[in-house]
Design a protein around this nucleic acid. Structure first.
Ligand SMILES: Nc1ncnc2c1ncn2[C@@H]1O[C@H](COP(=O)(O)OP(=O)(O)OP(=O)(O)O)[C@@H](O)[C@H]1O
Ligand SMILES: [Mg+2]
Length: 591
DNA sequence: CTTCTCTTCATTTTT
DNA sequence: TGAAGAGAAG
């Protein structure tokens, strides 16, 4: 628990404090120390809020703080911006239900049908979110969509933020909330969007309780409206703020850090903060050039197997023995996980997929859950609408309005089936949840996801009870496992999901032009994404660029990423594929 | 209103 | 390659 002088300064300076620092400089750790310092200085823990963007990060922050302070810090509030907004709004008696983006999309779909708007619902939804995240003016469609949410008593993720901001714009309310949260500490500040920034500014007031920390070079959520330039806005809004720079990276060994710095230096208009590695020694970055994405997966899996040392004699002299938990495999797009999973399964190595869609978001599971929620409260217009939107009773968007109106008049029309099923489930609300799921699968058929739901429901009380606690699982360790009970597993995740994490050995795969940088992305943000990926490594970094991969159903030859050209040659070892193995007949048949 | 065929388009994710 | 949407045909 030793802090370096800059970290000390960040921890001890009176607010407002703004810390700008690169990867692995101990930002999250410093934030935790500051929280603990505040408590030790006599601030009641309940008056402190430590905020980030994901539940996972918030959970880790909490662990770190409690790990440092133990009981002393109990009652300290940690959470995401969204949960902070919920807390504030519910405290003031405003209690809508929060809908996820799939539910929100169904609502938008309906509004679009009513207005005769054509086009992709998903894409339209994303654009409406972006518009709101940037505080831009929306059109008729956005107004209608917002009106509909309000009518149903719902918040989507963006409305939740803006409603909290609106509430805090009332000085009287703001006074009360500021009294509740006298100190606000924000990690990963580079990824705030407009309503989140406004929230911070409002809660901070004169700024005495404000502490923000982040790294503009790690801003990777611009695509959804975040803007790292809010760092500069702080300079205007809190001119009295103390700016602190942390210049030592404790995570990456020097070769990796230098290479990453070289790459990020290709972005223009950066914050000029120097950064040096605490650990001067370390291996060079290795670069693999497998022939395809399958070969890439195989190479990764084989390399991990070798390093873990099933066959110790294969490890080069002096190489550390690793366990599976030491490894992360990072990639640009979520679907890349599929080939990797195949390879891990085939070799029987334990892995876990971090982030991404959980099985609770699978259509079959959603269909069942939507029906169950409707069953609990058939008079809730939103629940009634949802049961007509997804699952076995779904109707085209334009017809849902009419159908639900007719149902209230007792005319079920073609939805007689829904009535029958409702009758069959009568009284199930307060019976064990897994029985309800079982019954559902008997009627509509089962699949692996529903079976998993059944298992989750077992021993979790009544259906009513189970549905009430589901949101807790949601964040839910979506962990697909190669091997049952092993806790030590290789982590597979997108570069986005890896933000803030660290692993002894990191693979970044698919470092190809068009994929990383992604063809459709902002090249500077793509570069930051790669920078984030590289700097997750505590000891070793292995990059891979496949010579070809299947893209949009066609095998495409992708040139190596421009980022590889930006790497200093002397920090990279280019590896040709290992000792050639005999070709199997299946490999031969490819030619 | 359902079912079909044809076209278009593909990132990343928060309670 | 495959999902989602548009439009036509049944
Ligand atoms: N003063 C220090 N002395 C030794 N190790 C430190 C020190 N400060 C931080 N570390 C270590 O450096 C690593 C990175 O710390 P941390 O995750 O807090 O960095 P970060 O700046 O939040 O990184 P990121 O930008 O990736 O979020 C951790 O393993 C942490 O324990
Ligand atoms: Mg951090």
């Amino acid at each position: 628990h030793i802090l370096d002088p800059s970290q000390e300064e960040a921890v001890n300076s009176p607010g407002p404090v703004v810390v700008v620092a690169g990867p692995g400089t101990g930002k999250t750790r410093t934030l935790a120390h500051r929280a603990v310092r505040l408590v030790r200085d006599g601030v009641p823990p309940g008056r402190i809020a430590a905020v980030t963007f994901t539940n996972k990060a918030a959970g880790e922050m909490r662990e770190r703080i409690l790990g440092l302070a133990g009981k002393e810090a109990e009652g300290l509030w940690t959470g995401t911006f969204h949960s902070l907004c919920l807390e504030i709004l519910r405290d003031r008696g405003k209690d809508f239900e929060v809908v996820d983006d799939l539910e929100a999309t169904r609502i938008l779909e309906e509004v679009m049908a009513e207005l005769g708007e054509k086009g992709r619902v998903q894409a339209t939804y994303e654009s409406l979110c972006r518009i709101r995240a940037r505080g831009e003016k929306g059109g008729k469609l956005l107004d209608a969509y917002r009106g509909r949410l309000k009518a149903y008593g719902l918040w989507d993720y963006e409305e939740l933020l803006w409603d909290a901001v609106e509430l805090l714009e009332d000085p009287e309310v703001l006074g009360k909330v500021r009294d509740r949260f006298r100190h606000i500490l924000v990690d990963e500040f580079q990824d705030v969007n407009l309503p989140q920034y406004k929230l911070v500014r409002l809660l901070a007031g004169d700024g005495k309780g404000l502490f923000v920390i982040g790294d503009p070079d790690q801003a990777i959520y611009g695509f959804r409206g975040a803007d790292y330039r809010f760092f500069f806005k702080l300079k205007e809004d809190f001119p009295q703020a103390r700016w602190v720079y942390l210049r030592t990276s404790y995570r990456c060994p020097e070769p990796i850090l230098m290479a990453a710095r070289r790459i990020i230096s290709h972005n223009p208009d950066r914050f000029p903060v120097k950064l040096s590695a605490h650990r001067k020694e370390g291996p060079r970055i290795r670069l693999l050039r497998p022939s395809s994405e399958l070969a890439e997966g195989i190479a990764v899996v084989r390399e991990i197997g070798r390093m873990v040392g099933g066959a110790t004699m294969l490890r080069a002299g002096g190489e550390t023995e690793r366990s599976f938990g030491d490894f992360a495999v990072l990639f640009r797009t979520a679907h890349q996980v599929e080939v990797l999973e195949e390879c891990f399964l085939k070799e029987g190595l334990p892995y876990r997929v971090v982030g991404g869609r959980g099985f609770l978001e699978e259509p079959s599971v959603r269909g069942a859950l939507t029906f169950f929620r409707f069953l609990l409260d058939p008079h809730d217009p939103f629940r009634a609408r949802m049961v007509l939107s997804e699952g076995p009773f779904s109707l085209p968007p334009a017809e849902r309005e009419k159908a639900s109106r007719r149902i209230t008049e007792g005319d079920w029309g073609r939805l007689g089936r829904l009535r029958e099923v409702l009758e069959e489930f009568e009284g199930m609300e307060d019976k064990p949840a897994h029985e309800a799921v079982k019954k559902w699968t008997e009627i509509f058929g089962e699949d692996g996801h529903l079976l998993r739901l059944m298992r989750l429901a077992e021993g979790r009380g009544s259906l009513r009870n189970f549905l009430g606690m589901l949101p807790l699982y949601k964040d839910g360790d979506y962990e697909r496992r190669g091997e049952g009970a092993r806790t030590e597993a290789v982590s597979l995740m997108t570069l986005h999901a890896a933000k803030g994490l660290e692993f002894p050995v990191v693979f970044v795969v698919g470092v190809e032009e068009g994929l990383l940088p992604h063809a459709e992305g902002d090249p500077e943000e793509e570069r930051r994404l790669f920078y984030v990926g590289m700097t997750r490594a505590r000891e070793e970094l292995i990059l891979s660029a496949a010579k070809s991969r299947i893209l949009h159903g066609r095998r495409a030859e992708l040139p190596p990423s421009r980022f590889l050209r930006e790497l200093p040659e002397d920090l990279v070892v280019r590896e040709t594929p290992g000792p050639r193995r005999r070709r199997t007949s299946s490999q031969l048949s490819l030619f």
